[in-house]
Simulated assay, not measured.
Amino acid sequence: MEQQLKDKWVVPELVGQALATVLMLVSLHWFVFLLNLPVAAWNMYRVWKVPMGNMGVFDPTEIHNRGQLKSHMKESMIKLGFHLLCFFIYLYSMILALIND
């Protein structure tokens, strides 16, 4: 686990996604919890499956040597779309809660 701590943004992303998922479970928002669960599980899987010699999840030498740049860019675009979708779901939920009060 020491190796992964070199990634500046991976650990905060993992903690934030896990925290959001747990908070949705505690507040009984089942749809949003089920929406966040696969992303939180993927983040945990990605961090724990880093090979021992790598600098972290996004090891620059491994990305270029194995041609992983395209797969990392694809993963980033999927996560961007997911976070954009979540933003609008949360915004809609907030507006709906404000209107109903």
Rank of each mutant, 00 (worst) to 15 (best):
R66A: 01
F33N: 05
M44C: 08
L96Q: 14
F87Y: 07
L69W: 14
M1V: 09
N36K: 00
T61S: 07
V57D: 00
M44K: 03
L96E: 14
K74W: 12
S93W: 12
T61I: 05
Q3M: 05
M24Q: 07
P12H: 06
M52D: 07
F33Y: 13
R66C: 00
T21F: 04
P60N: 03
V57T: 08
L35Q: 04
V22D: 03
V50T: 04
V57K: 00
K6A: 05
R66K: 05
S93Q: 15
F58I: 11
W30K: 03
K6R: 12
L34P: 05
K6G: 05
S76H: 11
Q4E: 02
F88W: 15
G56A: 01
C86Q: 15
I63K: 00
G56R: 01
V15L: 15
L14I: 01
L14D: 01
G16Y: 10
K8W: 08
G81M: 08
I78Q: 13
I95C: 11
G81H: 07
M55S: 12
L14F: 03
K8Q: 09
L19P: 00
W9P: 00
K70Y: 08
V39S: 02
Q3A: 08
F82H: 09
P51F: 10
K70I: 08
V39T: 04
Q17P: 03
A97F: 12
A41M: 06
L96W: 13
Y90P: 02
N36V: 00
T61Y: 06
H72C: 06
P60L: 02
R46T: 15
H29R: 10
A18C: 13
H64D: 09
Q68I: 01
K8P: 01
N100E: 15
P51Y: 10
I95K: 08
H83A: 08
V39I: 09
R66L: 02
N43D: 05
W9I: 04
M77F: 03
H64M: 10
A41T: 07
W42Q: 09
S76C: 08
L25G: 12
F33T: 06
N36F: 01
M52S: 08
L19G: 10
N54K: 11
K74P: 01
H29D: 07
M44V: 13
N100L: 15
V15D: 06
K74H: 11
G16S: 12
V32R: 03
T61F: 04
A41I: 11
V50Q: 01
S71W: 15
F58N: 07
M52H: 06
L69A: 15
P60T: 02
T21E: 05
Y90D: 11
Y90I: 11
E62R: 04
R46S: 14
N36T: 00
I78K: 13
L34Q: 07
C86T: 10
L69Q: 14
S71D: 13
H29A: 07
